[in-house]
């Protein structure tokens, strides 16, 4: 089982939000609209959307990183021209969101939102700052491992995926009910990017590789 179940009581917000009834699976499967995907174009994206470190007058604080990888389908083929959106906390673990009350500093030079379209190899690439871990109120002393939120479209609306990318060796993995909501350990590891010296840029930024594989649908068990 790849995807987490809806109900995962360790993650408290699932208790009142997880559907309790069985999902309905029509005999004929998705219709032709659901098997198609919205199309997005380069003209809809901003020039600075791929580099989260240049969206303000000054440079953001923190460790500059390059995060890149390919969006692939279940057969390993590249998914071209698909919209990839990311958002994340700053280096101190604070989101530029009004609802984030973590008493860590905001960075006036970092918003933490980006987007791009994959190229002909299905590749995306972002320059950003390594996000900090942050506390949340799920349970006593609850901390989220550092992560970047990813949103990907794919070639069918049924493939639509929103997930989180984590960094290698994070000591918080064992304590995080969101990461641990994925029952299978090997499936969990798919969310951890890989440090890559070839992606690392001398005198500039560490590089990480992370591929995203789109199955038929995340709604499956």
């Amino acid at each position: 089982m790849t995807h987490p179940p809806y109900l995962s009581p360790g993650y408290k917000s699932t208790v009142l939000r997880a559907p309790a009834q069985e999902l309905v699976m029509p005999k004929l499967g998705p219709d032709s609209v659901e098997l198609a995907s919205p199309v997005f174009g380069h003209q809809e994206l901003g020039r600075l959307d791929e580099d989260l470190t240049v969206q303000h007058p000054g440079e953001p604080l923190g460790e500059r990183i390059v995060v890149t990888g390919r969006v692939l389908d279940g057969q390993g083929r590249p998914v071209r021209g698909t919209l990839v959106e990311v958002w994340q906390a700053n280096a101190a673990g604070r989101y530029a969101h009004l609802g984030d009350i973590h008493p860590a500093p905001l960075d006036p030079n970092f918003t933490g939102a980006g987007r791009c379209l994959t190229d002909d190899d299905g590749r995306y690439r972002f320059v950003t700052i390594k996000p900090g871990a942050y506390p949340w109120r799920n349970h006593h002393n609850a901390w989220r491992p550092a992560h970047i939120h990813f949103s990907v479209f794919g070639t069918a609306f049924t493939q639509r995926l929103i997930t989180q990318m984590y960094f290698p060796g994070d000591p918080l993995f064992a304590y995080d009910p969101i990461f641990q909501s994925i029952p299978d350990e090997r499936a969990r590891e798919k969310l951890i990017c890989r440090f890559d010296m070839d992606t690392t840029e001398p005198e500039w930024a560490l590089g990480y590789q992370w591929d995203i594989v789109l199955g038929d649908t995340p709604m499956e068990a």
Binding site: G74, E85, Y95, S151, T163, S181, R186
Partner: peptide
């Protein structure tokens, strides 16, 4: 349907919650 990712493990990338802080993005 299964596939091999870079670590050889089969299957698609798992889903995770959108969380509470997507509103500005």
């Amino acid at each position: 349907m299964t596939t091999a990712s870079h670590d050889g493990a089969p299957g698609p990338t798992p889903s995770q919650t959108v969380g509470p802080f997507f509103g500005y993005a």
